[in-house]
Structure formats: structure tokens, C-alpha cells
Amino acid sequence: MATTLQASLDRLRATRVWKSIFRRGPAVTNRSRSQAVFGNLFLHWLPVKVREKALTVRASYYLGSISFLLFIALTVTGILLMFYYHPAVPQAYRDMKDLRFVVSNGVFLRNVHRLAAHLMVLLVFWHMFHVFYRGGYKPPHEFNWVVGVILLLLTLFLSYTGYLLPWDQLAFWAITVGSNIISAMPFVGSKMRFILLGGNVVGENALLRFYVLHVVVLPLAAFFFIGVHFWRVQKDGGLTVRSKNDGKK
């Protein structure tokens, strides 16, 4: 059994199709391991080599990675949830009820999505504070810190726009209260709120706008900045790792 699995895997790896996709042999040498990273669009974000110290849990608590993985999990569950969601009043609320009561595993997906969203906001904050206290914002990482701040804002907006979608009392009043903060801005505040909500009150237009922002605009922006963020980590010399003489004069 064990050998047959291995053998069939090996046979698969020997096919032209496999090779055309992965363009490398088994990752047994450093060269082929490098190719594995280089040759893959998504892994290309990562450097070929990392410092051993940066792999330790205490170096980062994997906060950035987990935030990213949460983003992926949110994307997957979010796309699945979209199959049962109509951004309309009051159908949106009925869809929540159907997810809860009728759709197979619907309530589970919604729970995971909601939980992951809260966790992501929490972890992104934590990630930021952790990076700060480790001095990770210092040159040459300044720009990546700024990208990180943008990603923090995007995360907040993603969570905030998603908050309205169930169209229940919690959602409605949280967005009403939240959007009124915007109108406190001088001169442009009420106009901005008007544009964001597509009206003067949180209504059908607001739901549709928040939906589009939540499922298209903000995720694309986040994906783009996450790419920049990863890529800059690599370009700025990897994770900040304390050397022996850090903090000691």
C-alpha cells in the first residue's frame, strides 16, 4: 500500500503534464527546492532561503502568516456563502435564516467566516504591535510598515462592510452608528456618508454598496497590498531578527 502510493506518485511526477506544470523534479536538492519557490507564482512572494532564527515561533508567532491564512479562509468561506446570499432587503436576512436552518453546513460556514473575520482584525492589530515592539518598522522596512498600516485599514473596512450584510438589528445599528462618525468630518463628512451609503439612511442602496465593497473592491485591494507586503519582506531583507548585540550598547 505504502509503496504503491509512493510509486504512483512517482509515476505521476514523471508525466509530461506534471512537468509542464511544475517544471522541476522532486525537491531533493537545494536547486530543485529553489526552483519550487521560483517556479510557482504564489511561492514567488517568498524568498528562496530564510534565516533559521526567523522560523522560530517566538520570532513572529506566525502572526503575519496566520493573518494571511485567515484572509484565504475568509475568501473561501466567503465565496461559498455568496452562493446563498442576495444583497437585497429583506431577502438578505432570510438568507441568513436559510443558512442557519436549511443549507447543509451553512451555519458552520457562516460561523467560520464570522469568527475568522474577528480573529483577523485581532491578529492584524497584534501583528502590528508585535512588529513595532520588535523594531520591525525601522529602516529598511519603513515602506513595508506603511503598507502594513494600509492593510490594517483594509482589514477594518472589510470587516466593517461585512458587518452590514446579514441585515439584522446588530448589523443595521452598528453601521448606522459607525457611518455617523464619518459625517462628523467638517465640510465633506455628510457628503462622504451620502456616497458611502448611497442615500441618507442605511437602506437597500447601502446594502448593495457594502456588498460590492466587501466581496470585490476591498478583497482585490487587500490581495494586491498583501502581495506587495510579502514581496517587500523579501526585498527588505527578510524578517527582522534580533542579533546578539540588539538592545545592548
Binding site: 461559498l80 452562493f83 436559510d98 436549511v102 443549507v103 447543509s104 453546513n105 451553512g106 460556514l109
Partner: peptide, 11 residues
């Protein structure tokens, strides 16, 4: 399998 189940509506 679960995804298939999820996609087939129950009502």
C-alpha cells in the same frame, strides 16, 4: 463531498 452537499439546495 461536503461542498457538493452544500451546493444542492434543501428547499
Amino acid at each position: 463531498v461536503v461542498t457538493y452537499q452544500y451546493f444542492s439546495p434543501n428547499v
